[in-house]
Structures are given as C-alpha cells and as structure tokens.
Design a binder for these strands. Structure first.
Length: 581
RNA sequence: GGGGACGUAGUUCAGUUGGUUAGAACGCUGCCCUGUCACGGCAGAGGUCGCGAGUUCGAGUCUCGUCGUCCCCGCCA
C-alpha cells in the first residue's frame, strides 16, 4: 500500500491505489503524492520519458481517486525526503487510471490548518481522511480488539443484549422508540445493559462481556455523547478483587496495543481517602495530594484568620509554578467562586509575615519545595450547620480548586505533558446520596448495588453511613468506569427499594421481571462498565470524544452530516398513533 | 434551564473611533517552469460580512432579536 514501500523495494513493479494528496507540477515533470490509510508515496511523471502519461497526469486534482502502475526507484541522495517513511523511494509511473474525480473539497485532508469543527462534521467523510483521524480510528480498533482477545482468553463470552427494551425511569432520561403494533407504547434504548447482564448471570453464563452502545438523553460535554460505547462485563461468584484483576488485565492489553506498558495492580483507595487526599472521587494522581495542615496553626491563629478550628485547613500544592502575582491571584478568585462552606487563603507570603512558624510547618507538612505554589482552603469561622459532612465540603472545595489551578498552569508545571497514565481504584462509595430537591435518598450507583455486609444494620437507621460494594476506575482525573458487586438476594433487594422510599408495588411495576428472576437461584455476581471512547480519547491525547468517534453528535445532539434528528411524515406518525403537540 | 466564547471568500483569519471599491494566506482557474515534496513565478476568478429588525447621512463595526458551533454549571441511577 501507499505507506509500505522502502528502499529495499527498489526495482519492483507495484500497483498503487488511492487519493491524490498533493500535486507538484514542475512543467516537464509532475509529482503526485498518492495517499491511502497507510501513508503517502510519490509518483513521478516525466514528459521526456512518457509524454502521453505526463499529459494525463497534468489533469489530476486534489482528492481524485487513481490507480497507478510503476516501478519503485531509489531516490538520489539529494532528493530523499526524510519527513515521510517512504521518502527514500518514488514510483515511476508507467500506467495511470483515473478511477474517480472529486469536486473541490471544502478543505483538504493534507492541509495542516484545521477547518472548524462544524465544517469537519458536515463533511466527516473528508475529515476522516486526515492522518490524525485515520490514526485515532485505527487506535480504537486495536484497543477494542485487544480487549476482546483478552477477555475471550479469560473465558468471557461476548453476548448481545437488546437495544429495543423497556423504559425503567430512574437515572438518565431514556431515548424512546414508539411501537407501531401497540400505539401509545414505547421501547427504550438501553442506558446500559445492566439488568440483562445480571440475568445472564442467573442464566449461568458466568463470565459475560460486551462492547456495546449505550444511550442517554442528557446534555452533552466534550467527554459525553448521547450514544457511547461501553466495555461492559459481569462475573458470577466474584470478590471485587477478581473484577479489578480482570479490568487491570484488559487495560494492560489495550494499552499495550497502543504501545504503552502499564504497571498493575493499580493503587486503591476508599472513597473517604479519595475525598480527604484529593477532594474528589476521581482523583488525578499526576499532581500532589492535598494536606490537612490545621495542626500547623494555633487556635488563636485560626481565629484571627477567621477559620473554623473544628474543620480541616487544606493545603493545595502545585509544583514548580511558584508564587502568584497579585494580578494572577485576582484572576484566579473566580476559579474558587463564592462558597458558603469554604474560604480561600491564596496569599501565603502575606500569611508568612504574620505567622512565619505556621507557614514553615505547613510547607513541611505538605512537602512543598520553595518553587511550589501553595494555597490554603479552610472553613469559615461562622457557618450554618446544614451539611452532613462539613469536612468533606472543605476537601471538595480544595479539590475543585486543585484541578482548576492544575489545568490553568499545565504549561508551567508540565505534569500533564509526560504522557503518564495514572490509574486508581476508588472503593467503598456511599450507598445513598441525599437529594435536597426531592428530600429523599437516591442510589449513588444504582439500586442493584450490594451494601457492605457490616453496614447492613444501618440501612434504616443511618442510610448516609452505609457503604456500597461499589468501585470506580479512574485515569488521570477522568472516571473511566464504574461497577459493583450486585445484590443477589430478593429480601435485601426489597430492603434497598424500601430505603429508597420505593413501595413494593412501585418496585414490582418497574423491575418486576427482574425481581422475579432474582428468586430463581441467583448466584452472587458483580461487574463493571468502562467507557471505550474515553479510554481511546486519553490514549490519543484528544480533548474531545468527537476525535475518536467516527460519526459523533454536536453539543446539541445533532448529527451535522446526515442532519438528524428530523421531523417525520404525517403518515409515519399516524401509523404510530402519535400526535405532535 | 443558566453562564461564557465565536460566526467575514471554498478554508484559516485580519478588518482601527461607524466613513472611499471589505483585505491576506492557503485552496481554486489559466500561463511559465525537469527534482519538487506545504515546489516556485506571473495573471485571474471568488463575498447576502450567519439571518432579521433597529439607531445613523452612512453599519462588517453600535443595539435588540434569532439561528448555528464550541466550553462550563445544572443534569448524566
């Protein structure tokens, strides 16, 4: 193919098929770079050697599809192009076929200046011809293949589950598909194959996986698409450690396919540790931890700083970037924002003038070098006692600022530039979250997650303290996947629904089929699902999922190429028994 | 639902305080050119300044609305 020829192919007769990447017409000699997904090769058309062919070559234009037959020739020392892998050779054409012409494209795949994304998405077929996109799509293929091979080799079956299924409202909004046979009734596209994979465990397929599309009708982000691909898996009789092992194994295989070696096992921490050390449940381990430096201060010092002595004083350390100017500090204030639960002390120099020993101590406690930036986040001395965990409030405010500062000064601290992949497991998530709007407990993961055995007695007395056998895998501050050991006993499942304020009838009407299945010999089981798009995005070093999804949607969930969604005909609606309001 | 950025030639962009015929680069067309590789030279074509109102003697520029794209918050069990 076009990217394959090397000096050792000298003298061979070859056929090249591809697109005209660029043409350089020097008059009596024409150079055509012919491109396919493997790369470029230079074709030469010399008027003095073959006038008719030279004439034909002069009509070629960008993105024409051609076939050429010719002889590989080593280039002269002075004409070698060191910038491309095939630069030591060229192909002297003896025959040329024009397989198809092209209109002038809105942008050229060979153009180093990138067209704006709106244009790229409308003409996605041209955008995908660009070398970086070809690379990303190939990378995606290799990663998916490595994962399939790994899981298959460990005894997992890839089993398909339906796309047209039942709406189980809770969680994200469903995409609905109207039924023609039953007017007024709808299928839902799966937000995940959760219940089906659990039922496969009940059916005895003890190791299941699927690389599967999932659908969620929520607003988009750079790292969120309405349809996205998950590596979904489930195992019977597992401890969480078994799930971690399998995930670490297939991630190692996937990263190896992308030429990166991963060390396993990944570090593990509880949700509580994650919050205390990073102020977030998806910690970015590329930067130093937070440190509670409250003990560096005396009670009087905390009072004069208007900091709450009962709550942590958290030091955020960003390496290398040094102290900030007054102007930079002012610019950074909005990153912290107006907060009730925490206050920011960003001028350590000034603090040092008042309390030199305290600052020396807190620098030591946080491990700060002289060249590191340190800022403090504490709780205001006067605060309402509303939050259940005010200490978490302080850590989380600090964690958010840590991420913002790190992002803002990425150019200076360089911690994000090494291409390092820092994985972590976060375990023991809380089982429930308090929903302030609806005044009730919600499942933090999903309602089929098993609580910790030893927290079982708190289900009614203190739901907020119940920990779940739930875990996330995190990479460089991005949540890659989330899973849990599931509930396999119907009596416990009922307790959970009750704790969520769901009546038996309500649970039956939503999940009846599943609750019934649980009663027919369900083995203990658990699993996880990881976002394939996010994995490939991080491997590709891309800023957006759109760079690794061939045909993505815009932030308003529109496909600009096919122009979807669209209205449908009155006849179609009538057939479905649907009327648009 | 809320906040922010952007929209000018096929593409990427510039366009001053509101003032002559809206510019550049790449791409495109034609001519010249035998060693280029982001070829080079000369000439040329190409514009509903996203769309609609308004202010003004005069709007790419100011105001309002609207459409679209991007980023963030909410949302994403």
């Amino acid at each position: 193919m076009c990217g394959d020829l090397r000096a050792e192919n000298d003298g061979q007769e070859v056929v090249l098929l591809g697109w005209v990447n660029r043409r350089r017409d020097l008059g009596n000699v024409i150079f055509i770079d012919v491109r396919d997904r493997t790369g470029l090769t230079q074709l030469v058309f010399d008027k003095s050697e073959n006038p008719a062919l030279h004439e034909k070559a002069s009509t070629l234009r960008s993105e024409f599809v051609i076939g050429a037959i010719g002889k590989v020739r080593r280039r002269g020392e002075k004409t070698i192009n060191r910038n491309i892998p095939t630069g030591e050779i060229e192909v002297v054409a003896s025959e040329l076929r024009l397989l198809n012409e092209s209109k002038q494209p809105p942008f050229l795949p060979s153009d180093p200046a990138l067209a704006n994304e709106e244009v790229r998405l409308k003409y996605r077929y041209i955008d995908l011809r660009r070398e970086p996109m070809q690379y990303n799509i190939e990378l995606r293929h290799k990663v998916a293949l490595a994962i399939r091979q790994y899981l298959s080799s460990k005894g997992f079956f890839e089993i398909e589950t339906p796309f047209m299924t039942r709406s189980t409202p809770e969680g994200a909004r469903d995409y609905l598909v109207p039924s023609r046979v039953y007017p007024g009734e709808f299928y839902a596209l799966p937000q995940s194959p959760q219940l089906f994979k659990q039922i496969l465990m009940i059916s005895g397929f003890d190791k299941y996986f699927q690389i599967v599309r999932c659908f969620r009708d929520e607003d988009l982000r750079a790292d969120r698409q309405p349809e996205f691909t998950q590596i979904d898996l489930e195992m019977s009789f597992p401890q969480p450690d078994r799930v971690f092992e399998v995930v670490e194994g297939f991630l190692q295989a996937a990263f190896k396919a992308a030429a990166h070696e991963l060390k396993t096992p990944f570090p593990r921490m509880s949700y509580d540790e994650a919050i205390r050390n990073y102020g977030i449940d998806k910690p970015d381990l590329r930067l130093p931890k937070l440190t509670d430096v409250r003990s560096a201060f005396t009670a009087e010092q905390l009072q004069s700083l208007q900091l709450n002595p009962e709550l942590p004083v958290v030091a955020i350390r960003i390496p290398v970037i040094g102290d900030l100017s007054r102007k930079e500090r002012d610019e950074n204030r909005p990153l912290f924002g107006e907060r009730k639960e925490a206050r920011l002390i960003d001028d350590i120099k000034r603090l040092e003038k008042s309390f030199p020993e305290a600052v020396a101590k807190l620098r030591e406690m946080s491990g700060a070098e002289a060249s590191d930036l340190v800022v403090l986040v504490g709780a205001p001395a006067q605060m309402e006692k509303s939050a259940t965990r005010p200490d978490y409030g302080v850590f989380m405010a600090a964690g958010a600022l840590r991420v913002e500062l790190a992002r803002k000064y990425a150019q200076r601290h360089m911690a994000f530039h090494k291409g390092g992949f820092h994985f972590a497991w976060v375990t023991d998530f809380p089982m429930f979250e308090w929903d302030e709007n609806e005044k009730r407990w919600n499942a933090a993961h999903h309602p089929f997650t098993s609580p910790h055995e030893r927290d079982m007695d708190k289900l009614e007395s203190d739901p907020g303290a119940v920990r779940a056998l739930a875990y996330d895998v995190v990479l460089n501050g991005t949540e890659l996947g989330s899973g849990s050991i599931r509930i396999h006993r119907q009596d416990i499942q009922s307790k959970i629904f009750r704790a969520l304020g769901m009546s038996d009838e309500e649970a039956r009407s939503r999940f009846g089929f599943f609750l019934e299945a649980l009663e027919y010999g369900t083995p203990p089981h658990g699993g996880i699902a990881l976002g394939l798009d996010r994995i490939v995005m991080i491997l590709a070093g891309a800023e957006s999922l759109r760079e690794v999804i061939p045909f993505p949607k815009t932030a308003k969930a529109v496909d600009l190429m096919v122009d979807a969604p669209t209205p449908v005909s009155e006849a179609q609606l009538r057939e479905l028994g649907i009327k648009i309001r």
